[in-house]
Design a protein around this nucleic acid. Structure first.
Lengths: 244, 244
DNA sequence: ATCGTTAATATGTATATACATATCAGAGCG
DNA sequence: CGCTCTGATATGTATATACATATTAACGAT
């Protein structure tokens, strides 16, 4: 019905923001370089100063540029270095401990995405998803609870997979090349369900790692791994690319 | 001429931002609670909708609230803080929430390293170290407990620094170029001391981030940051080709 | 020359306004 | 009963405008 939606999905100020970020991160505009004045960008993009100002303020808050009254806005030296967390394979982790690894499927449900799912997965329209839970064992003990949503619009063949023997993680990695991922790491108290699944007391501390994955701008999966406290430590090692 | 400078140094939209952050973080507005509509806040603060909108957009970007058209804005489950897994500066994190940051020094002790310290710091021979604790506040609430060891063989001038006003993190970064770092992230139950320092119940979940830093092969410092669960979420984002 | 004043300039913040867009509730119809 | 259509509503984005504030350059007086 809706005829032409050729129009960009992004807003103008986000386009400006992306343009400038791109030039800074690519090195085209080196640290110390003065970026165009607001009134120049206003002309360049054919928009009002407020729109430019919003984009530049955001860049300043993100630490990419520094703004000085009367002087202009300048590219800052890179402030920090991102740590690369390795995409961890639980089977490998368990076996590295010298313990036998076992995968145990749990619930499996195909359903329409609810608002909550869409928030977790960064999914715009409603659609079919696969909602899975499973557990990973180290020896006799449950090592990790996995709760996963898979966007069936991005991975339709998952609808026919039962995941009886194969864990969804390795299955997805073998099939869907991911282009971006985001990890969120936090501590949390075990809910009754989680406590039951991990064989620990409700309310006891857990490490929760959530990962969202995109493939070519489409959300693929959201997965939450829950570990009992002290059963798991994430390690990130890095050396700085440059110093400030 | 300019008689009255009673006026606050902060801008209005930052005051709104701080007010709302405070209420959410204090628990007055629990997750799921609908915060006042923009037009209500407009009346309440006697300002335009744009100003309110700017504050709320910032809160949404920080992850404290979720905005739904036609429905309103809602407090999100406390994945409150969005800190990219970078060399995180706690002051910056706190201020990103629009809350006043305060540093509070705790204990300070110069002593010979014990076996335990050497294990933490990867320190071979025995030597003098500085053992510090301090707290970082977000508004009225303790945000993070910092426990730090500094290798005085690597940073002798630290022996003369009292760290009364300057947090040891920024002080070290300004002085010692680091060449490698390692992070360890885990969940843990709050000990009595930690619970006391963070104003939480003993045994409740905490997120613990430990960092070791080396400079030219010499261990410089070991620091442990402890956050109350859900007051802090680490975020790491990446794409296979490059980080952004 | 040095100090203090003034003017110009770029950013910082706020306003009123306008229209777009998503979403929900309810009316109306088959 | 279920469906679509419609209007109401809250947020999203953009504009033009106004004044405040920090900083620098230029100017003038001592």
């Amino acid at each position: 019905m809706e005829a032409v939606r050729e129009q960009e999905a992004t807003s103008l100020h986000q386009r400006i923001l992306a343009d400038i970020s791109e030039r800074i991160l690519s090195g085209e505009w080196a640290p110390g370089h003065r970026i165009p004045f607001e009134h120049e960008l206003t002309e360049q993009y054919g928009c009002s100063r407020m729109t430019v100002n919003k984009a530049l303020s955001q860049l300043a808050k993100a630490g990419l540029i520094e703004r000085r009254r009367r002087s202009g806005s300048f590219v800052r030296r890179p402030q920090s270095q991102a740590a690369i967390l390795e995409i961890h394979d639980i089977k490998v982790e368990v076996q590295a401990l010298g313990l036998p690894y076992r995968y145990e499927p749990g619930t499996r449900q195909k359903r329409k995405s609810m608002a909550q799912d869409r928030a977790l997965m960064d999914l715009r329209p409603s659609g079919l998803i696969l909602d899975l839970t499973c557990r990973h064992f180290a020896g006799q003990r449950p090592f990790c609870l996995e709760e996963r949503l898979i966007n069936l619009a991005a991975v339709p063949e998952a609808a026919d997979e039962m995941f009886d023997d194969t864990a969804p993680g390795p299955w997805l990695i073998a099939r869907v090349p991911w282009s971006a991922a985001e990890h969120r790491i936090r501590a949390s108290a075990a809910s009754d369900d989680v406590a039951d699944a991990l064989d620990i007391d409700a309310g006891s501390p857990c490490l929760v790692v959530e990962r969202r994955t995109w493939s070519a701008e489409h959300p693929v999966t959201h997965v939450r791994f829950t570990y009992a406290a002290d059963s798991h430590t994430l390690v990130a090692r890095f050396t700085p690319s440059q110093n400030g």
